[in-house]
Amino acid sequence: MAEAIRRQAPLSRWVIYAVLVAFAAFYLVPLIVTVLNSVRTEQDIGSTSVVGWPRELALSNFGKAWGTYCIAQRCEGISPFMWNSILMVVPATIISTLIGALNGYSIALWRFRGDNWVFGIITLGVFLPEQMKLVPWTLVLRDLGLSNTITALVFIHVIQGISFTTLFCRNYYVAIPPDLLKAAKIDGAGYFRIFWRIVLPLSPPILIVTVIWQFTHIWNEFLYGVTFTTGAQQPVTAALIALSVSVAEAPQYGVQSAAVLIAALPTLLVYLFGGKYFLRGLTAGAVK
């Protein structure tokens, strides 16, 4: 195929490149605009538009966004919310990934009665809309005394996440040859030893996919954040909406751009360094 295309007229090659580059520009515009605005002054943006080259570098925007800007009567910038997100995303990612690996192993390789049913229901959890779970979660969190805490969000994301992590790991583990398991059983290895010595050492690719998926997913999650936490307990996505509401009266696009960039940075970095695994997770979790 490609051979045939290569022999085409140079003109059509140029057209192809032009289209591809134009789309690249289209995708990059919001990012570039945000980056540029984050170092522009308010007067600069106000007098022209959000699209423009900085007249002078206003690096102080980042400092304000991080530490002093007022969001909903609190003037600590987005840093406390970033910490909230980190405190939420790190334990939730690790715990849900470990449980998913164990679940996937049980379902895929340690066949038991009803395993197909269990797996079917867990996959249902992948596409069940979050709106169906809001009311029950409210009650569960109240009964556990976790209302409006980061712990509550960790708890929710672990349990929600099990569906995804189990699905990912199970689909990876079913490809492990059954002979390997038979050999291990004859060698005298049990459930835990097979998991620890044989399955887990084979798992790094899928664990990376799962961790990246869970990390970006939980970091970017918004609905649970705004529903179950308020004020100082909110993760950064929820706080950004609060920020955009609080600046609606006196827009501060420069500071806001800096805040948005900081909030997007962790997932962007994960994407840049783990793009291959990120795509694999997207494809596997596509039903979300």
Binding site: N220, F222, S257, A264, F278
Partner: peptide, 16 residues
Amino acid sequence: IYLYPMAVSFVVTGTV
């Protein structure tokens, strides 16, 4: 470049 928007929160995207 084409895929990076999927890695960023809808909140960020929507704001910009």
